[in-house]
Design a binder for these strands. Structure first.
Lengths: 139, 139
DNA sequence: CAAAACCCTGGAGCCGCTCCAGGGTCAAGC
DNA sequence: GCTTGACCCTGGAGCGGCTCCAGGGTTTTG
């Protein structure tokens, strides 16, 4: 299997596949006589694994750790749990701040219709923050 | 006001202030005879404005546009509306995918306790994805 | 047999900072 | 007067996770 095929089969860009190899996530494959990369099923699986983890927004460094776990399973899976828990914590924190963000932005958006002729409620709101006045965002 | 003061007053790092100048967001201030940057109130306001926009996760390019609007207010504020709407759209999209993510991760986390001695449900789940089997994440 | 599609390497660019090396300047304390 | 430490300067590199490009070679298609 050449790089183009493994890429389309996993839904990853060709450049990204090479990047994963360079980053030490995907083991370097054998080469054909012309220098082309020759992948096997193990690579396909590994790449699908990486993609799956990335879909969960797990950082590359953590995926590297997970693959190490896979190759050499630890006695207990407390390391793996910690990793997933950590990821869950990160995601939940991001979720929280994004929710706040959405609220602020929709408040800001409402400002547009207020303020009458020639005045832009949005810009005024943003400038108010610069003056340290109370604003919809920072109380 | 020197760079350290304006930085602490707005809660921005000194390096970041210089970066905003280089990025064309903060106009270059006057210089003291020793070469130190000398900021005035206008800079303080502008920096607070930038920081506020960043707190709303508005990208620097859009902040640049907003400051242009401020310096030269347009007849209508449809450009500004579009900008805020766009930001809102981005945030909502991110929110949606983060919510899905959180669900997948907590499902994954539950797998740990299942599967008995020596088996790691989490790793198995992730590997199942590599095999293209149905998994908690991609159906 | 030419054009298109694929492959290779090495390096730069994206965003929004952050940090570092290698210097200059200045106020306070001994 | 001299050291210490805090502050300031510039220019450039590094982060993550790709993405794109130049400048080549090879294979497939019409």
């Amino acid at each position: 299997m050449r790089i183009g095929e493994i890429a389309t089969r996993t839904g990853v860009e060709v450049e990204t596949v090479r990047y994963y190899e360079k980053a030490g996530l995907l083991p370097p494959p054998a080469r054909q006589t012309n220098g082309y990369r020759a992948y096997g099923m193990a690579h396909l699986e590994r790449l699908a694994f990486i993609r799956h983890c990335r879909a969960l927004d797990i950082p590359l460094a953590n995926i590297r750790e997970l693959t190490r776990f896979m190759e050499k399973p630890p006695a207990d899976c407390s390391g793996i749990n910690a990793l997933v828990d950590e990821q869950l914590r990160v995601v939940r924190a991001r979720l929280k701040s994004l929710k706040a963000l959405e609220k602020q932005l929709s408040l800001l958006r409402q400002r547009c219709t207020e303020g009458g002729r020639g005045k832009c409620g949005i810009l005024e709101e943003l400038v108010a923050a610069a003056h340290g006045e109370a604003c919809a965002c920072h109380g």
